[in-house]
Amino acid sequence: MRSEVWAVLAVVTLLLISSFMIPTGGLEGTELELRRDGETAVLHYSLPGHEHEYPASVVAFPIEQYRHDDITMLFDIGGVDDNSSNPANVQGLIDHLGADLQNIGSSREVEVIDHDALASFFSSGNGTLILASSLWDDIGLCHAAEAWVLAGGLLVSIGHGSIPFTSEMGGTLQLHYSSLDYDGGRDVSTTPFSQAFGWRTVAPSNGLLVKDVLDASGTVLGPIYHRGMDLTTMALIPYGQGAVLVLGGPIDKPFRASMEDVFAWDLARCLEAEVAWAIGEPTFVRVEVGSAGAQGSVALDTVDDSTYSLMGQNLDDTHLVFLHKLVEN
């Protein structure tokens, strides 16, 4: 009988511990405010304190438009080639992205479609579509994808071959990838967006040619790797009424550098903050937040009458701080 009593005590103890472990959300109390005064604007921020210091960033940038699309992702078992992400990794990204969006308090859902449903998706209006595999085998679908982006769709493409309308595909977008030697992170320059957001996808096996991004009037979002030619991990290309958010790829090992965990971390924050519709460089500040929190302000470099996207976030693993606000003129 004594053993039974011990067993019940153990069960009750574990129950008590479990009750302290269920998701409670992150630290509350983040505040962001943009005060405009004529041709100047100042971003005021307040980040919640914690007994252990944590790194955080606060960022503001102008955007052309904002939408609150759910995120649709192609899961295509048959579409695998050397440049595509493995279906297991795509499924991993679906899981991670859904969880990361939930963690940062986003109401966006991740919906999964298969290859056969793409045509009807492209004909159903604007949205956000993530492709991590190639559509090489279906020229008609590639044209439909291009028309959809031109009309206002947001295509997030991960890895070589996942943009269905590059010049290689007979399309007009001149964008090339090259093998990216990470080399322990040496010889890398930051960009304003990479510093502001602290992207975690640092080592995809293929990066984008920076020259091509700039030639296409795009913005380099990721850091720049100087490897004989300049390569980056992430870029934004406006395309007609829509945009292409291009990421190096494919999604592949290892975790913490080029796998679904880091792609999801970056995409969740990037999409929630409407980076895809950015029309200017970000103004940002990176801070170490102590127990008293962090309060401060930063003047925006350039100000116009655009809508501004404001975001405050933690950059470490053991805290969760996230707030996104849109400020219209």
Partner: peptide
């Protein structure tokens, strides 16, 4: 605060 499965 995201629980053991928060990072998936």
């Amino acid at each position: 605060g995201t629980g053991p499965y928060g990072m998936v």
